[in-house]
């Protein structure tokens, strides 16, 4: 089954390669991986999409947790979540096609972010299936380039994947919060 795992990682050189190395060394699947620093500059957030039997994913979580650079790990698949991916797509748009492409982009709530007389570049966010759907309605010959970001995700509701010792308005008595 597909799992989406959110990880807080020490923002140190080498931390990313520890995670990537773990997947190749142990032969785990990795579908996508995104990383960026967080509001706390000492931490990075990694979102990782993997798949495997429950036993394998259980090992993946344990092995990831075992990495000394991993501060916190949450398997978002276990609960309700929001997933997003961003797509940048450059499409051939000439003559009469320009209107049609614009309409398709609007239907999918895309934004045209760059225009030349021969092409549009469209930005689209959503879950993977929405992006797949958009790509599938554009004729392959019109597609000049596709760039996808990989998935990021967050739990729905109040649950969060933050360091255990971090206080927030939800777990402190601070009236100002």
């Amino acid at each position: 089954m597909r799992h989406i795992i959110s990880i807080l990682l020490e923002n140190e050189a080498g931390a990313l390669s520890r995670v990537a190395g773990l997947f190749s060394a142990r032969g785990y699947n990795i579908a996508s991986l995104t990383v960026a620093p967080t509001e706390d500059p000492s931490l990075s957030r990694m979102t990782l999409v993997t798949s495997g039997s429950e036993d394998v994913v259980d090992q993946i979580r344990k092995q990831l947790n075992k990495l000394v650079d991993v501060v916190k790990l949450v398997d978002l698949t276990e609960n309700k979540r929001i997933e997003r991916e961003m797509l940048l797509i450059k499409v051939c748009a000439e003559g009469g096609e320009r209107d049609e492409i614009k309409r398709l982009s609007d239907i999918f709530r895309g934004r045209i972010i760059d225009v030349t007389e021969r092409a549009y570049t469209i930005e689209l966010t959503g879950d993977g299936s929405k992006l797949d759907a958009f790509i599938s309605v554009i004729h392959p010959r019109r597609i000049l380039e596709v760039v996808r970001s990989g998935v990021i995700g967050i739990a729905r509701g109040n649950a969060s994947c933050v360091p255990d010792d971090r206080s927030s308005c939800l777990n402190s008595n601070d009236p100002a919060a």
Partner: peptide, 14 residues
């Protein structure tokens, strides 16, 4: 050395 030893250490530091 950090890269070469990564898969066979508990952790490494530079």
């Amino acid at each position: 050395a950090i890269g070469i030893t990564r898969p066979c250490v508990k952790h490494n530091f530079m």
